[in-house]
Amino acid sequence: MVISLVITVILILVASLGGLLFGASYILDQSLSDPDVLVHPSLSGNDIVVTIYEGRRLSELMQLSLEIEGYAPVVKDVPSGAKEIVYSSVAVQITGTRNVGVRGIFTDGSVKLLKVLVLKFT
């Protein structure tokens, strides 16, 4: 009786975790397949350059937040008409492979994930 209860609890936990992960990846896929603004980060020395291309909410884009796995996000203003935002020296001493994300902060206060990429720093 106790054993079956434990197994049931474990199954429920596994199912919940699976659902959570699936849901998270689904939301991620949804947001990235049709981003509000198309951006792309690339590494140049110790800098990361985020190039801004196009998007239906380009005129509403106020700030970009660069998030490197294991490091605090760095937020920078996006001047009107800016084609690229340079995050100087954010990659100092970063080596190996890390997930890098770029979020857009819009005039209405909404925050949207615009790009996720695995970058190989070395």
Binding site: G45, N46, A91, T95, T122
Partner: peptide
């Protein structure tokens, strides 16, 4: 530390060297 050294094409030779060696 030369990770940040780039040439006129924005290439970090040291990062490339490390990547190739690894």
């Amino acid at each position: 530390n030369q990770l940040g050294m780039t040439n006129s094409l924005g290439m970090s030779i040291v990062r490339e060297v490390i990547s190739l060696a690894q």
